[in-house]
Design a protein around this nucleic acid. Sequence first.
DNA 1: CCGAATCCGATAAGATACTG
DNA 2: CAGTATCTTATCGGATTCGG
Lengths: 116, 116
Amino acid sequence: MSMAEFKGKVKHIQDTPFGYTLSVIGGKWKMVIIYLLAENGPVRFNDLKRQIGVITYKMLSAQLKELEADGMVKRTEYPQVPPKVEYSLTKKAETLLPVLEELCEWGVKNQNPPIT
Amino acid sequence: MSMAEFKGKVKHIQDTPFGYTLSVIGGKWKMVIIYLLAENGPVRFNDLKRQIGVITYKMLSAQLKELEADGMVKRTEYPQVPPKVEYSLTKKAETLLPVLEELCEWGVKNQNPPIT
DNA sequence: CCGAATCCGATAAGATACTG
DNA sequence: CAGTATCTTATCGGATTCGG
C-alpha cells in the first residue's frame, strides 16, 4: 500500500458510531425482534417465531445469537422438560426503544401521506 | 401513535407503520446511503461508492433505485460526456435525519461502554 | 470516461426433517 | 420445545462489458 492510496481517503462508515449501531440492529430481522420483545415482554422461541411469521428457525436462531452477543437480548433457560427458553431485552436494548418509537412514528406519517 | 398502541391489534409486522419504515430504510445499505447523502450533499455515483467503500456497483445501483422509488432519493442526470449523475435526499428523507442522528448518538454511547 | 447492466462462482437464506 | 443438519434456492460479490 502506497502513500498515494491513503491520500484523501474517506473514513469508512463501518468505523463510525453510526456504523456500530447498524452492526447491532442492522440485520434483516433485528429491529423486528427488538420491537416484538419490547411489546410482548419475555417470550419463548416458538412464540417469537410465530409473531414474526415468515422467519425461519435458522435465521431466528442466528439473529438472536448475534443480538445476545451484542448485549441486546437476554436468554433465560429453564431446566425443565419440555425445554423452556425465554428471550427478553437488556437495559442496553431498552435505551434504543425511544428511537424505534420515532421510526414507527415516521412510518405513520409517511406510509400513506396526504396528496398535497 | 406509539409502538405500544399496536399491541394485540396487528398480526404481521410488515403491515404496521414500523414495518413500512423498515421496508424503506431496512435494506442492507440504505441507512448508510441516506447518512452519507445527508453529510455530503448531492454526490455522484462513484463518489458515493468510494465513501461506502465495500459496496459493489450492482448493490449501490439497486439500492439507489429502491430509495428513489420510495421517494427518499432524487436522481439528477446531466446530459454531458462523460456522464454525470447526482444523488441527493428528498424532503421526505430529510424528515428522517433527526432519527438517524439519534441512532448515531446511541452508537456513541454504546460502542465502547465502561466496564461495570 | 462514468454509470450501470451482465455473467458466473461464492455465499446466504429458505424449507423441512431430525435430535436432545 | 428449542434448536440443528441438510439440502435446495435465492441473493450477492467481482470481473467484465456495454452504452452514451
